[in-house]
Design a protein around this nucleic acid. Structure first.
Lengths: 216, 216
DNA sequence: GTCTATACTCTGATAGAC
DNA sequence: GTCTATCAGAGTATAGAC
């Protein structure tokens, strides 16, 4: 029951890495899995190589044989994460049915929280720290995309296809409501029980919420 | 323009502390302010006494003259925070108008995010780390209160005073939407600009959202 | 490729002069 | 009450045997 995994980042601009054997790939992946667990819980500075090594079942120097430094491990995780992070919003189709498109975006984000809660917490940790490592990503990639989709939603509102609500806050609300189930899972688990039930109830609730909010 | 401050925790059960001079109180408060800034950004383990000392304008040994340890500073901040954290939900009045009571709760939470964003991030950091230090608070204080108010809201729904929606997810949604503006302020600032505008638009949006959601 | 040993820095905390 | 000096432990990273 291994957790699903984000695709390997393959930025076309990055220099080609040295070829890696199967054992290389395998161990790098084991390390990244362990590091994701630790970084997403404690943040960059709060995490230690000892914890990651213990989680990975490898020795600390062995970690540093596969990655140049603690920072390099963290950077690799962030790169893979950001590569996928924008996909749900990118997929919003200007030609589709406005209400259905927004509902589908919300559901894609909720699925991301369900399938990749650790990645969501890794992202949350970065933002809480002031987003020092991903500021350029937010300004140069996320922001233009948000501006573009906000404009699209504004045009839908003007056309009477959806209610006249602030598109930026609509997007923020989708982020807040979906990511909350991953980022605050510990709290929700202590209140509602650690079963799936809590998350199972989220989808119908959010469906009802956005159905009512978007109706013109 | 000092930020507003949470009231000093005065648990009736705690042992009376030694009397403190004015300079004692003043410096302890300066340290707590600095520590709140650092802990809320980097989490407990990511924060260092050096950072806190620099932020407070005091020497590191001087910090430890006023507090027994790094942990003691952090614990004091959490205690003060939790003491206030439940107030908005506690104030929800079973005798009041259902829709108005829920809207008022949402607004009180939004005000808390506006006035105490660092405290919100301190709390978020704790939850992200799995809530190790506040687990008993969540299980023994927050959970019973949430159960109680959820039951109240369920009765309101049964009586046809509000829409038939899951009361737990309704509460979670209020937490997610209001705290998001404090916890993810860095991201919102990079997308919408660091002005007040972003937060100013939040209240009308959330008013519209919950007005539509709660209507029976 | 993996391990033990270790260098070196950072961090929490203490001692003791003033 | 506040500071300089310093210790002990933890943390990242490297050297070098195997």
């Amino acid at each position: 029951m291994a957790p699903p995994r984000l695709p390997t980042a393959q930025k076309s601009g990055s220099a080609p890495k040295a070829p890696r054997s199967r054992i290389q790939k395998r161990n790098r992946q084991i390390i990244l899995d362990a590091a994701l667990e630790v970084f997403s819980t404690h943040g960059f500075r709060g995490a230690t190589l000892d914890q990651i090594a213990a989680e990975a079942g490898l020795s600390k120097p062995n970690l540093l044989y596969y990655f140049d430094s603690k920072d390099a491990i963290h950077r690799e995780l962030l790169t893979r994460l950001l590569d996928t992070w924008l996909d749900p919003l990118r997929m919003m189709n200007p030609e589709g049915d406005p209400q259905a498109e927004i509902m589908a975006y919300m559901r894609r984000k909720l699925e991301l929280s369900r399938d990749f809660p650790r990645e969501s917490r890794l992202f949350a940790n970065e933002i809480l720290q002031g987003a020092p490592r991903i500021e350029s990503f937010i300004r140069n990639e996320l922001r233009p995309l948000v501006d573009n989709k906000a404009q699209l939603m504004a045009s839908w509102a003007t056309a009477g296809k959806i209610a006249r609500i602030d598109p930026y806050h609509l997007i923020f609300s989708i982020w807040a409501l979906t990511q909350h189930y991953a980022d605050f899972a510990a709290q929700i688990g202590m209140i509602r029980g650690d079963d799936q039930d809590a998350l199972d109830g989220a989808e119908p609730f959010l469906n009802a919420l956005y159905t009512r909010l978007l109706a013109p």
